[in-house]
Simulated scan of single mutants.
Amino acid sequence: MSGAATDGAPAFKVIAFYTGKSDLAHISFVHEANRWFPTMAAKHHFSYEATDDWGKLNASFLAGYRVVLFLDTRPEDPAQRAAFRDYMEHGGAWLGFHFAAFALTPSAFPQNWDWYHDQFLGSGQYVSNTWRPTSAVLRVVTPGHPATRGLPATFASAPNEWYRWEKDLRTNPSIQILLAIDAASFPLGTGPKPHEIWHEGYYPVAWTNRNYRMIYVNMGHNDMDYEHRTNRELSSTFASEAQSKFILQALLWLGGRTP
């Protein structure tokens, strides 16, 4: 477990869960997040810890934390899933990244958790993604939300692999979309497969569910040098100043602070 100490009692405590075993781009993000969040914790007076022990996802452990992060995956054990649902339904807060919302049947991560994917996230199954990881122009959809306060109307994201979802979040009254891909981004992706390049459409990339204290962000997949087999990191999720401001403000809001 890693963490960052702050002077005096922290305003709130954050626990980040991760797996860090599949897909080098996700592992790269996990390592980056576990460097960036402690730095933010020291500056903004909260505490940050991270663990790959999903067995700690239980009621007694979660009771010590104001905000839970899923950096790359979701819990698979039924008891852990039940503990997380109970935590969220009784006032807990959550920030999830990229692959934490992935579900596809059939795959190694099937859609076998209806509450999480259909009700909590509202997105349903994963459908497709752009490739390669590229920067997008993001539009602030809800400028009045604390997480988007002070952001420009549009801004350039860090490179990312962008997901498309089964369900149209615009039709769900519980979902409040915070950021979406702006049309200026198109064509988005470089292929080589034609379906990996988006030319039109509406794609939310960050949203909250009004019934819970939560925010999901689609960011969290760094660009990697797979082609030359060096596996070198080619991008950083926290390289975009505006995007990083959004992530920090989202976390502060979840922790009960007004950014």
Rank of each mutant, 00 (worst) to 15 (best):
A5F: 12
T6W: 13
F12Y: 14
V14I: 12
Y18K: 06
T19F: 06
S22R: 14
A25S: 15
S28K: 02
S28D: 15
S28Y: 13
F29W: 09
F29Q: 01
V30Q: 08
W36P: 00
P38F: 04
M40T: 00
K43Y: 01
E49M: 04
T51V: 02
N58V: 04
A59I: 07
L62N: 05
G64P: 01
Y65I: 00
L71C: 04
T73D: 15
T73W: 11
E76K: 12
P78G: 07
P78A: 03
Q80R: 05
A82Q: 12
H90N: 15
W94Q: 14
H98E: 07
A101N: 08
A108E: 15
P110Y: 04
Q111C: 12
W113F: 05
Y116W: 08
H117D: 11
Q119R: 14
G122Q: 03
S123K: 09
Q125N: 07
N129H: 15
T134P: 08
R139D: 12
V140L: 06
V141Y: 02
G150F: 02
G150Q: 02
L151P: 11
F155T: 03
A156K: 15
A156T: 15
A158Y: 05
Y163V: 01
Y163S: 04
Y163Q: 06
D168W: 01
L169C: 04
R170G: 12
N172S: 10
I175Y: 06
I181K: 14
D182R: 03
P187V: 00
P194C: 02
G201Q: 12
Y203S: 04
N211K: 14
Y212N: 06
R213W: 05
R213Q: 14
V217R: 06
G220F: 04
N222I: 00
N222Y: 05
D225V: 00
E227D: 14
R229T: 05
T230W: 02
N231G: 02
E233C: 09
S236N: 06
S236W: 08
A242F: 05
S244Q: 10
F246L: 03
I247F: 12
W253T: 07
W253E: 10
L254K: 04
R257H: 13
R257L: 12
T258A: 11
T258G: 04
